[in-house]
Design a protein around this nucleic acid. Structure first.
Lengths: 122, 122
DNA sequence: CAGGATCCTAAAAGATACTG
DNA sequence: CAGTATCTTTTAGGATCCTG
């Protein structure tokens, strides 16, 4: 989106579909996909290994976790390091860009709480 | 999620999958689905008719717009009023709960901008 | 004008088994 | 330990045509 929502002004936009250049789409890409926010929350507490992440989310399959991590790494939000030797150990860690997501996650939580307060009958 | 991300403390959670009671999931549900944030942005500027929304998002099909609106109405975020007579006119408008999403949309935009600044090479 | 009804395709998610 | 490979199921999105 080319404008903020806070009433700063509404300039007409020329595109009509989600664009990769739109900040909102960029932020959404980071938190989209099932389990994405849960994986991010775990990583917010510090580096985690593949199995530590699995242990925290038992009903998440290895395949989906792999997909989620690949996506986060591809977006530059998470970095991955492997220990040499055997068995291999990996460590996934938020990058400085990934840490930028913290306020967004907080805001998601805050907004959700506000909605639950206003609409307790859902 | 049962805890915020701001370092208030990390209590072990007992569930292991996205839950409808989790504030984060509630907020996510409001903004998920393609075009959802764009529809919400339009509505943030005031009531809109079905075709006004379509006109603003030309590549969005009637079916998907209907789905998005139904979802928002079902969540209590948007209300819909129909004019009597013919042809029918509808007006979609954010409820007070829907207005609670504004800061979240702003934060999405802000975070996206920050990410684009930190990762211009995507 | 404001959708509803169908049908179709693609993408995401999940289950299971296996490998470096 | 940290994944990969397949396969099946589910879901979302889109196209087209139709109706109150």
């Amino acid at each position: 989106m080319s404008v903020a929502f806070a009433g700063v002004g509404h300039q007409t936009v020329t595109w009509d579909r989600p664009s990769a250049q739109c900040p909102v789409e960029v932020a959404l890409a980071a938190i989209s996909g099932r389990w994405a926010t849960l994986v991010l929350r775990d990583l917010m507490h510090g580096p985690r290994s593949f199995s530590a992440l699995r242990a925290g989310l038992p009903s998440l399959s290895a395949k989906v976790l792999t997909e989620r991590l690949e996506s986060l790494v591809a977006q530059g939000l998470v970095s991955c390091s492997r220990s040499p030797g055997f068995p291999v150990r990996t460590s996934y860690e938020l990058t400085s860009a990934g840490l930028l997501l913290r306020p967004l996650l907080v805001e998601l939580y805050r907004t959700g709480e506000a909605l639950l307060g206003e609409l307790p009958d859902d």
